[in-house]
Design a protein around this nucleic acid. Structure first.
Lengths: 347, 347
DNA sequence: TATACTTTTGTAAGCGCTTACAAAAAGAGT
DNA sequence: ACTCTTTTTGTAAGCGCTTACAAAAGTATA
């Protein structure tokens, strides 16, 4: 039976192990760290003692002594959001491979406290920081940059920031999707925006406009409904658009959740998808494939964004003096059954 | 312009501050920790130096010296799941109030490594551990208990564990929902289970059976379809049930996501909800309110579960010798429009 | 002004580990 | 057996902070 002294619960130190195995603490440290300069017999003896005493390393002390923590801080606006979950999955996977751990901060928590807090919190605990979808990062970004604290932004197309960032080609995604609808023969295409304080929402709107322009179609302000990425805005938006004297034959929502709302609204009016109205979303959340009908949407590489951002951060950790860069990952149109060629609706 | 030496980036220690302000490091420590035994003038001088040098405390060192980290570890099976997100929200909120930070571990990461790893990882970094929906915690639970490491299980109705836990009244929830359908006049009620390796799924099934029994209705095995909590199982399950020679007039799915799948399948057959078939879900995820029709479901207090578990953990931290208890939070039936009184279907 | 307090400040030791460096042991070569 | 290497082990100092305890400085009282 191993672990005889386990009740001592975590109070076993490197010194106890040293004493128990009759070596010096230095040697124990070497064993722990797989230093090759330890005679196999000695190593065995030490390992045995470790086992017997139930010794487990104190990461705190190790971090302090080594000057590195192997912890990355991740700042997210909130949890409970599938969208963020996907990104997190990517981050998590990458961190795991590198043997790093993940400290999670939700900004709603610290929002009240001064921005400086972010930096101080992170300082000395995390080696780097990943900021997911920062709403108004202007505050702490300054501090982070001034301190040269390694960090990368995820899904934030800010304008004036000099921080490295990874995002998706929102503009292209919206462009391609809009163009697809145009090629199906649609001429009046409704658009439901996201929260316009977010760069990605702006980019999607611009992509939509650009596609119309490229095909010499007019940009009608009445066809653009300002939403907020929540389902209800999809319902609202669709209702407003369909109440227009000259309603659209297709609706492009800035994310899948709003597209689902739009679908509900459309169905509610007895209109059929895609026969009467085509619907397109953005994100390609897992749900969208199993809707009725399955949703045509723009796939966003969320998990990959997390991965790439994490890799960038690691690069920065290794070579601190790097140029800050911003990467855009490609979006891709996923055609499913919520879209169909235009045909005159029966009044 | 403050922060003149900020480029020094994090290398400012308590000693630097002491020197800059002409006091001893002990005094600086006192200022940092708001020790009242510091003359206001001195405090001001130190504060000034802190500001000037851009000093920020090193939590690692502080933790080491104090023997406490103010970090709680949270073990989740995976991210990207709205269900877990809700629980996390509760945990997060509670942790925040207490000034604790949150270290996140996803079990998929460590699953391969030996169970002991969980304990060693956590040891010396986290003061306590929250285990969300542990699938097969038998492995590390032993270690945790042996070490008397403070931890609480969330949403895990294990049988033999002696660990404190918080869950929901899954049995009652299912019982009440089933009874509600019975009272509406339904006699053949289909049931789609969750992953049966999870305690909560078993409890829901038992609640369903108990309600039938209580009303002297037969428990028909063919009306019970074994699902897995994913949407597709809802589609499958509904199809199987509706293909029965004597199909049910109501379907109770063990979670909302499967209920949504069932709704799709039902509609796909041209049947109407709730006119032809009543549907009930479980969880009350935000989505379910905005479906068409809005879903009748059993509300699970996910966020609250997170909160309560966290509070329990804090109690354990303060009074280590406590009896382990398990708490069940009440579920509640939320009646919406996916259910209607039974009436003979037209053929 | 001396005395006895009280408050403030300084100092040393220690939290558990790492890591140069020095010392000892083991191996090789003759 | 006796150097000269090479490998293994021990030791000391230090990571940045806390915290008793002691020393110094104030303050009040006589």
């Amino acid at each position: 039976m191993p672990n005889e002294d386990v009740q001592a619960s975590g109070k076993v130190t490197i010194f106890d192990v040293a004493e128990a195995s009759g070596v010096s603490y230095g040697t124990v440290s070497r064993v722990i760290n797989n230093d090759p300069h330890v005679r196999p017999a000695t190593r065995a003896r030490v390992m045995d003692a470790i086992q017997r005493l139930g010794y487990v390393i104190n990461r705190q002390a190790q971090s302090l002594a080594r000057g590195q923590t192997h912890v990355i801080g991740v700042l997210v606006p909130e949890l409970g959001n599938g969208y963020i979950g996907e990104i997190m999955r990517g981050i998590d996977g990458e961190l795991d491979q590198a043997g790093y751990d993940l400290m999670l901060f939700t900004t709603h928590r610290r929002a009240a406290k001064e921005a400086n807090y972010v930096a101080s919190l992170v300082q000395g605990v995390a080696e780097g920081l990943l900021l997911v979808l920062p709403r108004n990062p202007a505050d702490y970004l300054g501090v982070l940059s001034a301190r040269k604290f390694p960090h990368v932004l995820i899904d934030h197309q800010g304008i004036d920031t000099s921080s490295p960032a990874v995002g998706a080609t929102n503009w292209q995604g919206a462009f391609v999707a809009t163009e697809y609808l145009i090629n199906l023969g649609h001429r009046r295409i409704g658009f439901i925006t996201g929260s316009m304080d977010l760069g990605c929402a702006q980019d999607r709107l611009e992509g939509y406009k650009a596609a119309l322009r490229a095909h010499h179609l007019p940009i009608c302000p009445e066809l653009i409904y300002e939403g907020d990425f929540f389902q209800h805005a999809g319902v609202q938006g669709a209702n407003v658009l369909l109440d227009l004297p000259e309603p659209p034959s297709a609706i492009f929502a800035s994310n899948d959740v709003m597209a689902m709302g739009a679908m509900d609204a459309v169905r509610h009016r007895g209109l059929r998808i895609p026969d009467d109205i085509s619907i397109v979303g953005f994100d390609n959340i897992p749900q969208s494939a199993v809707l009725l009908p399955p949703l045509t949407t723009v796939q966003q590489p969320l998990e990959q964004m997390g991965r790439v951002a994490t890799q960038m951060l690691f690069d920065m950790l290794q070579e601190p003096g790097q140029r800050t860069s911003r990467i855009e990952l490609p979006t891709e149109l996923v055609v499913r059954q919520s879209t169909a060629p235009y045909r005159n609706r029966i009044g």
